[in-house]
């Protein structure tokens, strides 16, 4: 796998993605109110907050599944009112889901291969024959997928339908599928939810390795505060759709509003 984003003109440390004054409502329900933050190239950025704080909605805004009523999204220097899923995907934003959203009827291999769809250019004509250019392309992408399989240590379940896998492995396959897109920005929605300690350690290792080896920028939502503090470079804290803190783990840890939000305020 090439180092994604290395040739895209955004240097490490520059702002890769910025959301400015984004507000999102569903009818009368305000999911996000006037939130601004940025994600810098090469960092691990965490979004935390209590349940219903608007974290997942924020990710959905970033990859274009929700369209905010107000605000702007700047990605790779290009400012938009809203993202569109196809544009986000083709410009290198990939994503995992809170509740695993794998293609259940397909094998691990096919799931990760499906992540390569955007990179495949072969014509429909040759697909009919599964020979010549179509087969060459298929093999070329299979090699990349095998690298991901090796990286995530899931060789043994290559041909297993993912519906039959245990939850921890499904999460890992889903990470593999997101990696297959060679993303510049990887959005992880609770990658460690429902995992035991050992699985969490494995997943943390993979996240750090992806960040180090491929230089992929990562934005993650996670409830395990210990993991978040250890992994992330900067943290943004949301509560009831508003941003209440933004900074390094140490800054956030000692922020009084954050402590109040998580522990409650004495009356």
């Amino acid at each position: 796998m090439r180092a994604p984003g290395s040739d895209k003109g955004v240097a490490a440390g520059d702002v890769l993605l910025a959301v400015d004054n984004v507000s999102l409502n569903f009818g009368g329900v305000k999911a996000i109110t006037d939130v601004s933050f940025d994600i810098r190239k090469g960092e691990i950025r965490a979004i935390i907050g209590p349940n219903g704080a608007g974290k997942t909605s924020m990710l959905n805004v970033i990859n274009g599944f929700y369209h905010p009523q107000q605000g702007r999204i700047t990605y790779r220097g290009e400012t938009r009112q809203k993202m569109r899923p196809y544009v986000a995907a083709s410009q290198g934003i990939s994503r995992t889901f809170q509740n695993v959203a794998l293609f259940k009827g397909m094998s691990t291999l096919d799931n990760i291969m499906a992540g390569r769809t955007l990179k495949m250019r072969g014509s429909f004509f040759w697909q009919l024959f599964r020979h010549g250019p179509a087969m060459r392309e298929e093999i070329e992408h299979r090699k990349v997928v095998e690298e991901i399989i090796d990286f995530l240590e899931i060789q043994a379940i290559r041909k297993t339908p993912v519906g039959k896998l245990p939850y921890g492995l499904q999460k890992r396959v889903e990470l593999g599928r997101a990696l297959a897109m060679e993303p510049d920005l990887l959005l992880l929605d609770e990658p460690m939810a429902g995992m035991n300690l050992e699985e969490k350690e494995d997943m943390s290792r993979f996240i750090i390795d992806v960040n180090n080896q491929y230089g992929t920028t990562i934005a993650l939502i996670e409830h395990d505060i210990g993991v978040v503090m250890d992994l992330s470079d900067r943290i943004v804290v949301l509560e009831y759709g508003r941003k209440i803190a933004d900074g390094t783990p140490d800054q956030v840890k000692s922020d009084q509003t954050v402590i109040d939000a998580y522990l409650g305020v004495p009356h």
């Binding site: 599944f65 990939s94 959203a101 096919d110 499906a114 769809t117």
Partner: peptide
Amino acid sequence: MAVRDMDIAAELMGIR
């Protein structure tokens, strides 16, 4: 099959 099994994930992966 991606559209069949999970259309939202397929869409966010760039499958139109």
